[in-house]
Computed example of a mutant assay.
Amino acid sequence: MALVSDLTKAEENLLEKMTEGNSLIQLLAGDGENSYVCVGNRRVDPAFFLLCHINPNRKVCNGNIGNKKVALSYVNELNVQSDELRIIVDRRNSEEMRLYGYNKEAAFILKEEEEVNDKNLVIAYIENQSFAQLIVFNSKLNRKTSEIIVKKESMFKELRNNAFTIVGAFFPAIHDFIIDNEDLGSY
């Protein structure tokens, strides 16, 4: 699958550990047409999946809202063809979550302790019938990473609302996907 090709050595090592069942490693990937989400050696089929990477020159948001594909990509605020985006979340070190990323421009690593994260923002939202998860990495903050996981179905709408609000601030077109999608009900 193209979403998991052109791996760096670090990514190969992480995916090997992940496929051995290490649930502290998670693969998130999307190209606007296809999405791929794995937690440990388990593939997840999310009803809602948004994977966004924003830096000063490029903004990408891929995934799906219900059965509707999301493919938003901008270079210097100009709409361009959607790019592949891949993030491997590594939380094996309890002190720090690391994000290993890949997009059309480059492979990159985002870490809590580094000052040279170069104005990066990553937003990932995953929801299926078992759990909802929101990950935010903001290089401008002292505490760069934040993660919320809920398993109580009554909390899914709350977390989804927060995720859509954050993503909508950077990708206003996402609201069209939300309004057009009957899977959201009264979101």
Rank of each mutant, 00 (worst) to 15 (best):
K59A: 11
K59C: 03
K59G: 03
K59R: 13
V60F: 01
V60E: 06
V60A: 00
C61Q: 00
C61N: 05
C61L: 15
N62P: 01
G63I: 09
G63P: 05
N64G: 02
N64D: 07
N64S: 08
I65A: 08
I65E: 06
I65R: 03
I65F: 04
G66D: 02
G66V: 05
G66N: 00
N67F: 06
N67P: 02
N67W: 07
K68R: 13
K68E: 14
K69T: 07
K69G: 03
K69R: 14
K69M: 09
K69C: 00
V70S: 04
V70W: 02
A71W: 04
A71C: 14
L72Q: 04
L72W: 02
S73N: 12
S73R: 01
S73M: 05
Y74T: 09
Y74K: 12
Y74W: 02
V75S: 09
N76F: 11
N76L: 15
N76P: 03
E77W: 00
L78H: 08
N79Q: 14
N79C: 12
V80R: 12
V80A: 09
Q81T: 03
S82P: 01
S82Q: 04
D83C: 07
E84N: 13
L85W: 08
I87M: 14
I87W: 09
I88Y: 10
I88C: 11
V89G: 02
V89T: 06
V89M: 05
D90G: 05
D90I: 02
R91V: 06
N93A: 12
S94E: 15
E95T: 00
E95L: 11
E95Q: 10
E96A: 14
M97G: 03
M97A: 10
R98I: 10
L99M: 11
G101L: 13
N103A: 02
N103P: 00
N103S: 13
K104D: 11
K104V: 04
E105D: 01
E105N: 00
E105C: 06
E105I: 01
E105A: 08
F108M: 14
F108I: 11
F108H: 02
I109L: 14
I109V: 15
I109N: 03
I109H: 06
L110V: 04
L110W: 07
E112M: 01
E112L: 07
E113D: 14
E114V: 00
E114W: 08
E114F: 10
E114S: 13
E114D: 13
E115W: 01
E115G: 04
E115P: 03
E115H: 07
N117Q: 12
N117D: 09
D118S: 13
D118G: 05
D118E: 15
K119I: 04
K119Y: 11
K119N: 14
